[in-house]
Simulated scan of single mutants.
Amino acid sequence: MNHNTKSFIGIELLYVIGIIAISFSSIFVRWSDADVAVIAMYRLYLTNLLLLPVAWKYRHVLFRLTARQWGWLAASGAMLALHFLLWMASLRLTTVASSTVILTLEPVMVMVGSYFLFRTRTNSVMLIGMGIAIAGSVVIGAGDFKLSGDALLGDLLSFFGTVAVAIHVLIGKKLMEKIDSFPYSFWVFAFAATFLAFYNVAQGNRFTGYEAKEWGIFLLLAIVPTLFGHYLFNWLLKYMNATAVSMSVLGEPVISSILAWVLLKEALTGYQLGAGLFILFGVWLFIRHGDRAKATKTLSAS
């Protein structure tokens, strides 16, 4: 096994770790009683607090950015903040399965955006893999979709949150052609958290007085789905195309639904578990056969 093959397998392993990590996000949010905007704000601020030792290493490049780059970092942060705000709110109105299955539209949105922005082409194997994964995701959430009341509002919030995160991913891919993944992630998280802080002030949400349990949940969200999820996927944008990275959300309904079944006692049927296997197969097909050449080429040049 040559160096490039080992490196690509390492990237695949990190990709799987990222999928598992982000799948815990919905569980932690459901455990918390705090306002979703407060949860998202502290999740991001605590992430950057944990990253401060690494920030010292990058101190000479953290501020070497152009005015245009600062503007796009703020835009990416705004989209990330909007995603967290809308998607976390959806979890209060609908089930984990319904909310996360709508996120599977993200790679489609990113694929279309990548074609127009970066001329990234999608081959037939990638499309087949994406189709299999999305079909499996629909099966997982189909029995749970409701077209009335709070559930419909929750589904709509999840949809618009998906649009926001797709824009966030596309901006990130463009920015990281010129800047490293750490300065990008650090400043995007800072901007997103600050936008959420202003929102909390406007809404009159309290910043203090939370029980130890809530602070523990905020910290878990910072460590598991943010550091080992979002930050990891931002780093992978250096080695994979934006559509491939966004495909990670197709694995989230599988893991999230299983976690919700175990930890939240939400219903999960046998056919939904079977659909989960189709999702994982579709994601594997997309990554293995659609992005191998690009990842190997990038690693060889680094």
Rank of each mutant, 00 (worst) to 15 (best):
H3Y: 11
K6S: 10
K6T: 13
I9E: 13
E12C: 15
E12W: 13
E12K: 15
E12L: 14
Y15W: 11
I17P: 10
I17L: 14
G18A: 15
I22P: 01
I22S: 02
F24D: 00
S26P: 02
S32T: 07
A34H: 09
D35H: 15
D35Q: 15
V38W: 03
I39A: 05
Y42C: 01
Y45V: 12
Y45F: 15
L46W: 02
L46M: 08
L50I: 03
L52H: 04
P53R: 11
A55G: 05
Y58P: 09
R59F: 01
L62H: 08
F63R: 15
L65C: 08
T66G: 14
W70D: 10
W72Q: 13
L73S: 11
A75V: 14
S76P: 11
S76A: 15
G77A: 12
A78P: 07
A78L: 14
M79I: 08
M79N: 08
L80T: 01
L80R: 03
L82H: 01
L82K: 09
H83Y: 10
F84V: 00
M88V: 04
M88G: 05
L91N: 06
L91C: 07
R92L: 02
T94C: 09
A97S: 11
T100R: 05
V101P: 00
T104A: 11
E106G: 03
M111A: 14
V112E: 00
F118L: 01
S124F: 13
L127C: 09
A133C: 06
A133I: 07
V138K: 10
V138Q: 04
A142K: 09
L147P: 03
L147W: 15
G149D: 12
A151S: 15
G154A: 06
D155T: 14
L157S: 04
L157V: 00
S158I: 05
F160P: 09
A164R: 02
H168P: 07
L170D: 00
G172P: 08
M176D: 02
K178V: 14
D180Y: 08
F182M: 08
F189Q: 03
A190Q: 11
F191C: 12
F191P: 06
A193Y: 02
F195E: 05
L196V: 02
L196R: 04
L196M: 11
L196W: 01
A202G: 10
Q203C: 13
G204E: 05
G204L: 05
G204S: 11
R206A: 12
W215C: 04
F218M: 06
L220N: 04
T226A: 06
F228H: 08
F228P: 09
Y231S: 14
Y231F: 15
F233K: 01
L236V: 11
L237F: 09
N241I: 09
T243C: 03
A244C: 09
S248W: 08
G251P: 08
V254Y: 10
V254R: 05
L268C: 06
T269C: 12
G270P: 05
Y271S: 13
L273K: 08
A275D: 02
F278D: 07
L280W: 09
F281I: 15
V283Q: 03
V283T: 02
R288K: 15
D291C: 03
K294W: 13
T296H: 12
S300M: 15
